[in-house]
Design a binder for these strands. Structure first.
Lengths: 143, 143
DNA sequence: TAGAAATAATTAGCCAGCTAAACAAGTGGG
DNA sequence: CCCACTTGTTTAGCTGGCTAATTATTTCTA
């Protein structure tokens, strides 16, 4: 490392992209009454009805607290409901409401595809694959 | 777009990397008593003594509220001090303390370089340049 | 010159993220 | 069986992010 200025590093570029990406996601999600991160949680629940908070914590790679609170807010807004598990009283299972199911559909069609389209715009198919490969290496480095 | 599963998109990969990168940054910054984002703010101030909050807002690409609050916390923790500008009573100028100046040095040597090294590990010089180019396109797409 | 418009910062409240600690339930070994 | 240990969730409090509204100051226009 030869003292590259901070603002010319991959890290700096990453933090800038992260912010821009998240902001764009939030813009697209606003029309669905959702916040960045919630949509992925809803999709996880959609893939596994009755998933536990613990499973969500692992699947989302976030802390248990974050899951608890996000789920709380989504329940309050009518997207899901939590039910304590009778087989294991420590566990809470989560189920989508009709509103939640509709939201998941909208997330996929109106939000995620649009976000992805914008994110990889002006990149050829080859460049997209290349970008993915490099990014996977970065993710591996940081995990 | 041919209905790529969400978890195979560049966007999803991005959000995962963002989280991992930010967490790693926070780990490295914890020893310096700083939080992700604060270090870049301190560096901006270091580059321009007496920078205004408004200039920081533009330079950091964040909201004025975020700058106000982060600066508040950094002042409280002794890294900087704010002084209202006499020429324009609306403005606040920010100056690093000795503690703040030392922190900026440490940020560069003990945190940012380490983070960058880990982020681009296992990538050749060519791959790094390529990654930067592709990422710049992504940033441009999202801005 | 006076008042409207613009500007800089702050307040209030919402969000996802985190660590540490606490609480309740479950497990397993002596 | 009993209790130490583990597990799942929640509480408490901190952070950077945001929007909308507010306050004080400055600028601009008629």
């Amino acid at each position: 490392m030869n003292k590259i200025p901070v603002n010319e590093t991959v890290s700096y570029l990453l933090s800038r992209i992260c912010k821009a990406h998240r902001n764009r996601a939030n813009e697209l999600l606003a029309t669905l009454d959702l916040h960045a991160g919630q949509e992925l949680l809803l999709q996880q629940i959609h893939q596994q009805e009755g998933i536990t908070l613990n499973e969500l914590t692992c699947g989302m790679c976030v802390s248990a607290v974050t899951v608890t609170r996000t789920v709380e807010r989504l329940e309050k807004n009518g997207f899901l409901k939590k039910i304590r598990c009778m087989a294991d009283q420590r566990s809470v299972r989560v189920y989508l409401t009709e509103k939640g199911k509709k939201a998941v559909e909208s997330v996929t069609e109106k939000m995620w595809e649009e976000l992805e389209k914008e994110t990889v715009a002006n990149l050829s198919t080859e460049e997209r694959l290349l970008l993915k490969r490099l990014m996977m290496q970065v993710l591996k480095n940081l995990s």
